[in-house]
Structures are given as structure tokens and as C-alpha cells.
Simulated scan of single mutants.
Amino acid sequence: MRRWPYTFGVSLSIVVGVTAIIAAQRLDVPLRDPDGFLGPAYVRLPLIGLMFFAAGIIPMAVRRGWRDGIPGIVGEFRGILKADWSLKRVGYIATGLLTFYVCYVSYRNLKSDLPLIRKGVLFDTDMLRLDHYLFFGHNPAEVLHSFLGTSVAAQVLATAYVSYLPLIPLTLGAFLVWGKDLSLGAWYATALSLNWILGVVSYYSMPTLGPAFAQSSMFQDLPVTGVTELQRSLFRAGSSFKEDPTGSASYGIAGFASLHVSVVVTACIFFERTGQKLVIRVLAWAFLVMTVLATIYFGWHYLADDIAGAFIGWLSVSIAAWATGNRGRRRRSPEREREIAARAEYAEPTPEPAS
């Protein structure tokens, strides 16, 4: 099954896509293509792929052929395409983007169906009690407001939280288009897709609204940020959906588990296991810390949501590694590769056994 690294991912996208279609038909609601950064996902993802394609080829072609003018650049462009861009590679890139797209759109539709299927079932009171227990009788959000303040910290954390929306598709595009090892792109695309599926399962297993929607008074003193606008938009859309589920609005409020945390954890672990540059790994872990703080600070999630999200992120990477043939893989750093090569060069040859 794992000879083609996308077998599992494509199968997963078919199953979840069919599930979303059946749910929409049973509930008599339309399937919706959620909007996002740079427009709908079916526009956004191809644009990201084309952007990385251009960024990977055009500068190289210009650098090699600028002395001969436009004809030289065009000639180098064609040479790079012929040498590096086989139909197999293009097919892998398209499959990765399509798998991610189908799983994400299905996730958004199944998430929107949540209040219709799990009517009136909420666990916010239990989660709030658990938060107080874990923080020794205190509310985690109030502790962060007191410790970090509610001015500069709010703006910084809001910027980090909202930047998640474009960053994840961009990292996927980078690995799919720029990566020479096609199985790594399949691994990352499958891991991200698994986040959406496991996230939907967690939403239905324990529906919550999150502190900002269950106890909005706790966050009224925070300044207006991009997060504030996003929360208001989600509240308006959720209210419109409940009034008319067949309309254009979709429901997008769910706390357990935190997919912001799960997806960023997936990226961090994937970067570590594939031996990305130190600066990339450090930035990824720093972004995770900011994301976790933001989820609590703005009341998106309870502590248990973030813990469950971290588990989903780890599980997604592990399952995707097995499914794409990368189980147990650890890419050595360039320094380690050079060290091993040097040792091999000066090692004494192993004597052949006597006949």
C-alpha cells in the first residue's frame, strides 16, 4: 500500500470527502467552500504552488542566463524544467495540494455540521473546572492577562495567532514544490490532512465553545486586535448558521481540541525529524510557544484543548510517517553527513574473507 506515498492520503481524502457529502445530504445543508487567505482554497492552493514554482526557477534561470539576455534566460528556464520538473514531480505536487484541499474543505463542512448533530451538548463547564484545578484555583487567561499585560502583549500574540492562517499553506507549498525528496512532501501533506480529520473527531467527541464564547465577559477588557475581529466574525457567522443552516454562513466555533496547536506541533516535529536548518526549527518552536499563549490569552481554548492538540499533532506526524514509508526516518544534519563521509574516507578497508 505504501509503494506510492500518497495512497493513504488520497484514500483518507476520499473517505472524509464522501462523509462530508453524505452528512450534507442527510442534514439538508449545502456543501461550502470556506474562504481564507487569498480567497477560496481551490484558488489559494494552486496560487501558492505556482508562486513557489516561479520562485524556485525564475531566479536561477536569470542568474545563469542574464549575460545572453532574454534568449539566454528563456533557454536556461527550459533547461531547468527539462532537468528537474518531470511529470512525476508535478503529479506529486498536484496530489499533495489536492489531498490537503479535500481534507480541509471536508473538515470545515463537518465542523459546521456540529451543532446540528450534537445539539445542546457542551462540556465548557467541565473544562473550566479542569482549568481552575490545573492552575491551583486560578483562571489561566486571567493569570496571563496579569502577567503579560493587556496592551503590547495583546497585539504581539494576536499577530502570531492570525499569521497561522497563511503560514501553514505556505509551508506546505514550500515542501511540495521545492523539495527534491518527493516522499517528504507526501509525509507533510498527509500529516496536515490528518490534523483536520482527527480534529473533527475530537470536536464531536467533546463539543465546547471555548472560554471567549462561553464566558465572554472575561475578555472584554482586551484591546481590539485581529483576533477580536475574527472572534466577532465567527460569532456572527455561527448565529446566522443557527438561524438558517441552509444559508451561506457556516459554523466555525469549536474548542476541543486546538488545531492551531496541533498543526504547529506537526510542523515542529516534522522539521526536527527531517533535519531542517536550525533557524527554521528554532522559529517553529518559538511560534508554537506564541500560539499556545495566544490560545489561552484570548480565550480560544482551555488547557486540555492545547494538550489534546499537541497529542494530535504528534500522532499525525507518526501515522503519516508510516503511511508514506518514512517511519523511523531521521535526516542527519549536513555537518553530521560530512563527518560520516570523512570517517568513511579514512577508514581501513574491511579485508575480504579467505576462500
Rank of each mutant, 00 (worst) to 15 (best):
294 A>I: 01
32 R>S: 02
193 S>W: 07
77 F>A: 06
127 M>R: 12
332 R>K: 06
165 L>M: 13
306 D>G: 02
200 V>Y: 13
258 S>H: 08
70 I>A: 11
214 A>C: 06
185 G>Y: 05
200 V>P: 08
344 A>I: 10
293 L>F: 15
225 T>N: 07
97 L>A: 09
66 W>R: 10
75 G>W: 02
94 A>R: 01
100 F>L: 06
37 F>P: 12
219 F>G: 10
200 V>N: 07
74 V>A: 04
46 P>L: 00
211 P>H: 12
270 F>A: 15
184 L>N: 07
187 W>F: 10
204 Y>A: 13
96 G>S: 02
194 L>Y: 04
161 Y>C: 03
14 I>E: 05
334 P>E: 15
98 L>R: 00
3 R>D: 12
242 K>C: 01
120 G>F: 05
184 L>S: 01
291 T>W: 03
109 N>M: 03
32 R>L: 03
56 G>M: 03
147 F>Y: 10
62 V>R: 14
309 G>F: 12
95 T>H: 03
56 G>A: 11
308 A>P: 05
151 S>E: 15
307 I>V: 15
219 F>S: 09
86 S>R: 09
341 A>N: 14
22 I>D: 06
184 L>R: 05
270 F>N: 08
237 A>R: 06
282 V>D: 01
290 M>E: 06
327 R>S: 11
291 T>P: 03
240 S>Y: 01
72 G>K: 13
332 R>M: 11
61 A>M: 10
162 V>F: 12
83 A>K: 06
119 K>R: 11
198 L>T: 13
212 A>T: 00
120 G>V: 08
173 G>H: 09
15 V>P: 12
188 Y>L: 14
254 A>E: 11
23 A>V: 15
278 L>H: 02
171 T>Q: 13
152 V>E: 07
4 W>V: 12
57 I>A: 06
346 Y>C: 04
195 N>K: 02
318 S>W: 08
219 F>E: 11
133 Y>T: 14
5 P>D: 09
143 V>Q: 10
132 H>A: 15
7 T>P: 14
317 V>S: 04
180 K>L: 00
116 L>K: 09
169 P>F: 07
124 D>M: 09
149 G>Q: 04
200 V>A: 07
155 Q>M: 14
49 G>F: 09
47 L>G: 03
59 P>F: 04
25 Q>R: 15
5 P>F: 02
191 A>R: 07
192 L>H: 04
273 R>M: 09
273 R>V: 13
168 I>M: 12
284 A>W: 01
44 R>W: 04
269 I>H: 00
353 P>V: 09
24 A>D: 02
56 G>D: 12
245 P>E: 07
148 L>M: 03
229 E>I: 11
300 W>D: 03
128 L>E: 15
232 R>F: 01
121 V>T: 11
277 K>I: 02
61 A>Q: 09
39 G>P: 01
275 G>V: 08
135 F>N: 13
85 W>N: 10
199 G>R: 08
18 V>D: 05
73 I>Y: 00
315 L>R: 08
334 P>Y: 13
187 W>D: 05
123 F>T: 08
161 Y>I: 00
267 A>V: 14
59 P>D: 03
332 R>H: 11
137 G>Q: 00
144 L>A: 09
164 Y>H: 10
199 G>S: 14
334 P>I: 14
8 F>R: 13
89 R>C: 03
